[in-house]
């Protein structure tokens, strides 16, 4: 009989996932970590194993999540390693250079493939497996950028927005089956992904802070959370600006 939460993390070496993984280990979860960078992944496994109690399992597999054909195999491996799955956490993603994307359609599509299509593929696969067992949780990281298209960041925004809409539908479909779907919408987070930005001011949060919010939302069975909380109000305003006005704004 399984007595720990079993969590699969996709994109485990991203800063937010890494901070979340540490909290999950603290809470006694067993983890299966999937990441692209083998050395970074092993460093995370070492770190978590030092923190874990004897009964907790920390396993990992190296994979490029852009290769959607490999996803089913990753789920199989996770199920085998953890004796089943309770939670699927989808955290991988890339932040593109918007101007470079504007100049290159292939780059735009590649980004949408990584952030939206591969994440949707994982969520879809997870949904079928969790629905069959009648319980479980799917968590995926969207973005406040997905709430409205803006000239400075609409390729990234579109990919995250697509993911959020898909998750919304999934939540509706899975609600009667005891499966929770949680969409996380972080604002500005100080991570290597945002290394190119000047990170000053009260809007920037640390990955640890966001991770605490994620774990809390998982526990309280939320559907969608903005992290930190004040982004809910910021985005409420931004979503409600009439398009006639919005299209002339520089955001």
């Amino acid at each position: 009989m399984n007595t720990t939460q079993r969590v699969v993390l996709f994109g485990a070496t991203s800063a937010i996932a890494q901070a979340t993984a540490r909290l999950l280990v603290q809470q006694g979860c067993s983890l299966f970590l999937v990441g692209r960078n083998a050395m970074k992944l092993q460093a995370l496994v070492d770190d978590l194993r030092v923190r874990a109690a004897p009964g907790q399992r920390i396993e990992s597999m190296n994979a490029d999540l852009d290769l959607i054909d490999g996803h089913a195999h990753l789920f199989d491996a996770a199920e085998k390693n953890l004796d089943g799955i309770d939670t699927v956490f989808i955290a991988h993603g890339a932040l593109p250079d918007q101007t470079a994307c504007e100049a290159s359609v292939p780059l735009t599509l590649a980004l949408i493939h990584t952030n939206a299509l591969s994440a949707i593929a994982l969520a879809g696969e997870a949904a079928n497996r969790l629905q069959a067992q009648g319980h479980g949780l799917i968590v995926a990281i969207g973005s406040v950028a997905g709430d409205r298209g803006r000239q400075s960041n609409y390729v990234y925004g579109a990919s995250k927005g697509m993911l959020a809409l898909f998750l919304q539908g999934l939540r509706n479909r899975l609600a009667p089956h005891g499966v929770q779907v949680l969409t996380i919408k972080p604002g500005f987070v100080d991570t290597p992904m945002t290394a190119a930005f000047e990170k000053k001011g009260p809007l920037w949060a640390t990955p640890e802070h966001v991770a605490h919010g994620i774990v809390k939302a998982m526990r309280s069975r939320r559907d969608e959370v903005y992290l930190p909380w004040f982004w809910y109000w910021i985005m409420l305003v931004i979503r409600n600006i009439p398009e006639r006005v919005f299209k002339h704004m520089k955001l």
Binding site: A43, D46, D47, V50, P192
Partner: peptide
């Protein structure tokens, strides 16, 4: 600050 992992204990 990013080099904050435990390796073995």
């Amino acid at each position: 600050t990013g080099l904050n992992r435990l390796i073995a204990f």
